[in-house]
Amino acid sequence: MNFIEAYSSDHLTFLLDGFLVTLYVAFISIVLSFMFGGVIGTLRYANIPIVSNILAVAVETIRNLPLLLIIFFTYFALPEIGIKLEITAAAITALTIFESAMLSEIIRSGLKSVEKGQTEAARSSGLSYVQTLFLIIMPQALRRMVPPIVSQFISLLKDTSLAVVIALPELIHNAQIINGQSADSSYFFPIFLLAAFMYFAVNYSLSLAARKLELKQM
């Protein structure tokens, strides 16, 4: 283990560049998957004929596929039908597809967890179905969704490392390159220890923020 050489300024800068790519891909994927997952989950909760059934099949199919397979498909298979994405766009697309399906189920379950009496009381007071959904049901459901949604976001951040298979220059990819520069692998432990700390710092911060938010809403 050679900590001094492993933690040279060039190596640390290169590792930080990879981590910034990880955070960028994760952030964009989180925003997009929350948007798409919210729409899909709400539509499934609304139980619209045909639409809900189609979405249910799509969601269950995606949820039961390995994320790695979706990444491969997005980067290697889509060009076969004329859709060629560069590496970062392919990683974001694959993560968004997978996480949208996961989040849609969390959101649908959260909406269903609100007691039916709330809906009946709102409708009897003159509110429309849409007003009831967004003014009464959604605010209550969101409080219950915070822990599982944050947990899913943490998983998404960690899952960005799978994009190393398509050479996305993220944290793990750059850590592997640095490790490859040591003939005796003396950089392995220091570099991957630092990479692990970076993941932990961000994910633990997200967990603390979610816990505080949950306590405020109680």
Score class of each variant (00 low, 15 high):
Met1Cys: 10
Ser8Ala: 09
Phe14Met: 14
Val21Lys: 00
Thr22Asp: 04
Tyr24Pro: 00
Tyr24Met: 08
Val25Lys: 00
Ala26Lys: 01
Phe27Gln: 00
Phe27Ile: 10
Ser29Thr: 04
Ile30Ser: 12
Ser33Tyr: 06
Met35Gly: 03
Gly37Val: 09
Val39Glu: 04
Val39Thr: 07
Gly41Val: 03
Thr42Lys: 07
Arg44Gly: 09
Arg44Asn: 13
Val51Met: 14
Asn53Gly: 15
Leu55Asp: 12
Ala56Trp: 11
Asn64Tyr: 06
Leu69Ser: 12
Ile70Met: 08
Thr74Leu: 09
Thr74Ser: 15
Tyr75Trp: 07
Phe76Met: 13
Leu78Thr: 04
Pro79Val: 07
Ile81His: 09
Ile83His: 04
Ile87His: 02
Ser104Phe: 05
Ser104Gln: 06
Glu105Asp: 13
Ile106Ser: 09
Gly110Asn: 09
Lys116Ser: 13
Thr119Asp: 11
Tyr129Ser: 11
Val130Leu: 15
Thr132Cys: 13
Ile136Val: 15
Ile137Asn: 06
Ile137Ser: 11
Pro139Lys: 03
Ala141Cys: 09
Ala141Arg: 06
Val146Gly: 08
Pro148Cys: 10
Val150Ile: 14
Ser151Arg: 04
Ile154Val: 14
Leu156Thr: 06
Leu156Cys: 05
Leu157Ile: 15
Leu157Glu: 05
Val164Cys: 03
Ile166Trp: 05
Glu170Asp: 12
Ile172Tyr: 08
Gly180Asn: 15
Gln181Trp: 08
Ser182Thr: 08
Ala183Pro: 01
Ala183Glu: 15
Ser185Asn: 15
Tyr187Arg: 01
Phe189Tyr: 13
Pro190Gly: 05
Ala196Phe: 11
Met198Pro: 04
Phe200Pro: 03
Ala201Tyr: 12
Tyr204His: 12
Ser205Asp: 01
Ser205Glu: 02
Ala210Cys: 07
Arg211His: 10
Arg211Pro: 00
Arg211Asp: 13
Lys212Ser: 11
Leu213His: 01
Leu213Phe: 08
Lys216Glu: 11
